[in-house]
Every structure is written in C-alpha cells, then in structure tokens.
Design a protein around this nucleic acid. Structure first.
Lengths: 222, 222
DNA sequence: GCAAAAGTGTTACGCGTACACCCATGG
DNA sequence: CCATGGGTGTACGCGTAACACTTTTGC
C-alpha cells in the first residue's frame, strides 16, 4: 500500500526526553537504535506519527512501545525540522519532555530499540541525529520552570519527606539550600499536605510524610 | 507530478500571529481567506511548508507573500495537530508569533488572501480553524515574556521616548505603572541609550529620545 | 499665564537570606 | 551514649512599591 500526494509531504515524528532522579542525580532515558540511520547510537525514544493520532498520543505511544514507560507528566518542548536532519527523508520532529518519579519505573526495551537505559546527564553517550540539542533545551526548560512552578513535584513519588523534596530542588538548581528557608518557602506555597505518618530511614529521627495537594497539576508560583 | 510514500504523511504548515501597537492597543494581523475551507473567514497568515525550507523560513515566506510584512522578531510558539482540524487532510501546524513596530508597517494582501488587515485583540472577527486558540496562547506568552525579558522593545520604533515605552508596558500588562518607578527600573537594566535629541509632541516640554542598545536581541532580565 | 506632558528622590514595608541548636531514633 | 538526619525561630538588608512637585514647552 502506498500513499500519493500532489505536493511533497514531510514525515512527522515525536521525540521525548524523559528525566528522572536516580542515585541523587538527574538521569535521562535513552534507547539504543537497532536500525540505520545511526544504528547502534543512543537516541531519544520517539517515532513516526500515525495519521489519525494526536501529537501527544504519539509521544506517549512511542515511549510505551520503546521503553515500557507510561503515565508521565508530559509537556511539549519545541519543533525542529531543518532539511537534511534525517538522511532518509524530510522529517519534522515535535519534541516533548517528561518527568517521572524514580520509584517503580521499570524500563523494558521494545521492538524498535535494542536496549533502553538511564544515563546521568553528565555522562551521556554519543547521540543520534540532533538529539543532543533537544536534551539541552529540555534541561534548560526544566531548570527554568523549577523556579516558577511546582514542576519538581512530578519527580516525586506519591508521598515523600521534606528532606527528599529539598534534595530534588538542590539537584535541579545545582546548589545547596538552607533547610529552614526551604521548608518555610515550600510550605508557604500551600501545595503540600501532611499525611499523618512517619518515615524511618535509618538510625535517626523519623520524618513527617507529605503529599502534593494537586499531584496532577503543575501550579505557577511567584 | 505526484509524490508517493509507503506510509501516510501529514501536511505541515506554519501559522504566525503578528502583533503590533496601533491606536494605543495591541492589534493582530489577519488575512481573509480566499479559498475553502473557511472561505471568507479571517485567519492567521501561514501556509504549507516547502520540502526544502526550514520551518522559520516558511513562516517568514508565507507572511511576506500574504501580507507584505517582513523583518520581524519571530519566535516559535507551539505545534498543534489534532486529527481533523483541517477538513482537507491531516495537517500539523507549527505556530509562531511575531512583533512589529507600528511605524512603517505597510500591509499588502497577497495572492492567497483576499485582504489583510489589523484587528484589535478585543474585536477579533470569527476565525478559521483553531486559530483562536493560537492567538490566545500567543497573547499569554507575550504577556509573560514582557515580565522577564526585553521583548517589549520589539514593538518600538528605532527611537522612542520613555513615556512611549511606558505606555507599551502598560498596554501589555494591562495596568498603569508609576512613572518614577518605571524609569528607575527600565534604566537600571542598562538596555537603553540616550540619543542626544528631543522630541516635541505638542504644547509641552519635549522628551529625551532613547534607543535600544541591542535592538535585535531579546535579553532575559531578573 | 495656563495647559500638558517631562522629569526627578525619598520613605516604608515585606520578602528573601543568613544563621545554630535541640529532637527522635537505632544500634 | 553516640551518631545521624529531622525539625524549629529570629534578625538584618535589600529591593519593590508608594507617593507629589517642579520644569519646559506651545498657544
């Protein structure tokens, strides 16, 4: 079966930069390409848009097919489409970034990818296409948005302690924060509620447990 | 001549929301559609991507062809592509927004549009496709970006007075600003230089004339 | 001299930042 | 009882916001 048009049409793909926190650092989900072009190189999960699916659906579907990951916070990043960025044909790529809590994220390679794995941002392998640029811009957006929204909550499991949350902000902002000031600030946003429990993490006082009031919505603050 | 693919391909278009300041309000450039679908309705300038041009080139070309307008500040907004948003075929639209100084903006309708004209944002006509959503998001982005960048300068002619600039900020932010605080703030950014002249605007003291130090670059501030 | 916009400093308040010690637990 | 991270309050300084009068021009 073939499809014929009066004018040339580009192909459209989505690509997703998925971030999570593992081992106290930001990590990115990449797949190893099974086919040419760039066979054997690492790339963002993504693929061609089906003719009757929405862009965001496509991003979610490809992510699930290639890595087994689903149910993430997903936000459109930007669209690039330089001629010749893909040697096969003209490809327009609509890029997204996604955030996932570290717990219970099981990654399974799918059929189009030889392998899927997490990489610390500081130790990325050589990347296919112009995916390095996409990652750079996703990281910029994430860092900026952490300053004026509750997007960082999307990296947390359902419940967490304030120390854990502070640690996430410290990693995103790449600086250490004062414990008292952080707690005053984060509680003043009225976006957290205490769930009456304690978490024991070792030989020390257990921590109160909190939960995001609107875990499925990123609030704009300041 | 026809073009054949193994899988169905969507069409890709660009659409541009061009803002300017006229008559002390934000106005938007629209064209009246000459052909179906939505013949006779007003729409954003834009059109189909050529197979060897970059996305931004396409936006600029369509804008020039349809309205005669060129040399604007142009920034990508977002990409939408719901199935069935265009009755002809699947269309992915990469949207941009643009800002233009009001002076010397001559608008000329092109071949694909019956007419091109400016509309105050508060008095928009019925719009084709989902262009109302694009306009809403462009306006949100512009208002947000005015708070943390020098993007408002893109609405100014080459030289201007501080009162004129303040008026632009008041329109964008939809609130009146204190004259002394505004001047202190805008001058503290070190983005303006005085050009040694005065502007007489009527029966009152003439104003000093300023110019943006980097008129072709939007600086991030705060 | 009158109308109309240009231009100019000071004060107050609130928020962000800096900073150190006690508490609860496990071993 | 010791080690470890959890939890708490105050003081200072800076930056934002509020506020009114004099100057220059045209008619």
């Amino acid at each position: 079966m073939t499809y014929t048009y009066e004018y040339p049409h580009p192909a459209v793909t989505t690509d997703v930069a998925v971030f999570t926190l593992r081992e106290q650092q930001l990590q990115l989900l990449l797949i190893c390409r099974r086919h040419d072009p760039h066979k054997g190189k690492w790339a963002l999960p993504g693929g061609f848009l089906e003719i009757d699916e929405d862009l965001e659906e496509c991003a979610k579907r490809e992510l699930k097919e290639e890595t087994g990951v689903s149910d993430l916070y997903l936000e459109q990043l930007f669209t690039l489409g330089r001629p010749n960025r893909d040697p096969r044909e003209r490809v327009i790529s609509v890029t997204y970034y996604a955030l996932a809590p570290a717990n219970k994220l099981t990654v399974n390679a799918g059929s189009d990818a030889a392998e899927a794995d997490w990489f610390p941002l500081s130790q990325l392998p050589e990347l296919a296409f112009d995916h390095a640029e996409i990652i750079r811009r996703a990281q910029e957006r994430l860092a900026a948005k952490a300053l004026y929204s509750t997007i960082a909550f999307q990296l947390m499991p359902e419940t967490f302690t304030l120390s854990e949350l502070q640690s996430v902000y410290e990693i995103l902002r790449n600086e250490s924060l004062d414990k008292r000031n952080f707690r005053k600030w984060i509680l003043s946003l009225n976006q957290l509620e205490e769930v009456g429990g304690k978490q024991r993490n070792g030989n020390h006082r257990p921590a109160k447990i909190y939960r995001a009031l609107n875990p499925n919505h990123v609030e704009i603050i300041r």
